[in-house]
Design a protein around this nucleic acid. Structure first.
Lengths: 220, 220
DNA sequence: TGTACATCAGTGAACGCGCGTTCACTGATGTAC
DNA sequence: TGTACATCAGTGAACGCGCGTTCACTGATGTAC
């Protein structure tokens, strides 16, 4: 069906994979269309049959990253315990785990090319992920685990926390994670320490629903 | 004392300032020694009398950024209320405010050239800032405001939170901050929402300040 | 105070490099008849 | 089934550009005597 040299089977995909590998190895600033083409065993002009320019390749990878992130968050949500606090933690952990496992995707998600979207509805998956987090925050508020009120500040905070933590862990020495019994355990410890489930007495009217929820939250 | 063309008064400082301006305007990837020299009105070779290479300039600016950050955190600590929770929030806000006001410094702090320090004791100021945060966390734990135990996870979490929040705000639309009555109010609301002081059942003596604090968080 | 001289901090031209992108081209593919 | 032809997806050479860095140089500065 495909002669190996001419009419490459799926050069578009191959270019994207080589780009991912290059970013993983040497970072986003080192991403070069020429090197991607060379790694794919193709001339420097070939990529232009599949991407309008370098920015288009970066955007394609960025959107792929956002889609994969959302997929993982969906999986985490489905697999998490029903308790809102555990669901919130599962979503946060999924983000961080993704960024740690696939730093190349994490870098591409934040690429400058992704900042100003071309079409208005250009970034669908990102919004979906944030909505997942927002829903989990609202559920926590309703259960009295997070301070009630506008759910946007805590959602922004959670997003910032997991993003910052992912970056921190990317450059942190491995010894730090080992000290806590692995990266996953450290992530869990940090999240639970910074975003503690509320105690049952903040507002007496939440006491009843809270006591059950916070029990779940504290003893996973 | 200095003829304006030859023997520039303080070319080293001038180059650093032009570099800061360039990074602020066009971002760290656009930082170029040639352009810095041109902006300072000097030949392309002149910077090499003051910096061994481009990386040396970046490192000099990065260390300056860390020193300035620590200075601001010291000021924030000195000016904050005595209550541990307010001190913790003041430190976090100071970091974020600095990163928002001086995004060029924030970018340089995180430059790849800063990742692997040359000399072992090359990054003194960064450690100092983290120790401030650590001390504030410990104080919060002792006061029963944060979950007692190992102070490192909550410290890492706070560091990640403020760093992530600073980055988020750098790209966030201005309308978001306006909605909450300005950037400062939004930062405060997010920090209070994500890192809530423990409820008064854990430590009843904080009941009073808590109710007012959460009011502030809710109605900026 | 004047002068000789070492040092310092600039100049301007050039180097080689890797980059994104474009061009005319060509061989393979698939389809219409 | 065979053939003509439009289209597709590659090639390889070249473009101009901005970059970091180096070089021999030169004029200004400050110091020793």
């Amino acid at each position: 069906m495909k002669s190996d040299a001419y009419h490459h089977g799926d050069l578009r995909r191959a270019l994207m994979d080589e780009a991912l590998g290059l970013v993983r190895e040497r970072g986003l600033p080192a991403l070069s269309l020429r090197e991607v083409a060379a790694r794919a065993g193709v001339s420097t002009a070939a990529p232009y049959h599949h991407f309008a320019d370098k920015a288009a390749l970066v955007r394609a990878l960025g959107y792929e990253a956002l889609a994969e992130l959302d997929r993982r968050m969906a999986v985490a949500e489905a697999g998490a315990a029903a308790a809102p606090y555990e669901r919130l933690l599962a979503l946060g952990s999924a983000y961080i785990a993704f960024a740690c496992e696939r730093p190349e995707y994490a870098a591409l998600m934040r690429a400058p090319e992704m900042a100003a979207p071309q079409a208005p509805d250009d970034v669908p998956e990102h919004g979906r992920s944030r909505e997942r987090l927002l829903a989990a925050v609202v559920a926590c508020q309703e259960a009295g685990i997070l301070t009630p009120g506008d759910p946007l500040p805590p959602t922004i905070g959670m997003w910032a926390l997991v993003q910052g933590l992912a970056e921190l862990l990317a450059t942190a020495p491995a010894s730090l994670a080992e000290q806590y019994g692995g990266k996953g355990a450290l992530i869990d410890a940090v999240l639970r320490a910074v975003v503690p489930p509320a105690g049952p007495c903040i507002a007496p009217r939440f006491a009843a629903e809270l006591s059950s929820a916070s029990d779940v939250g504290r003893t996973p």
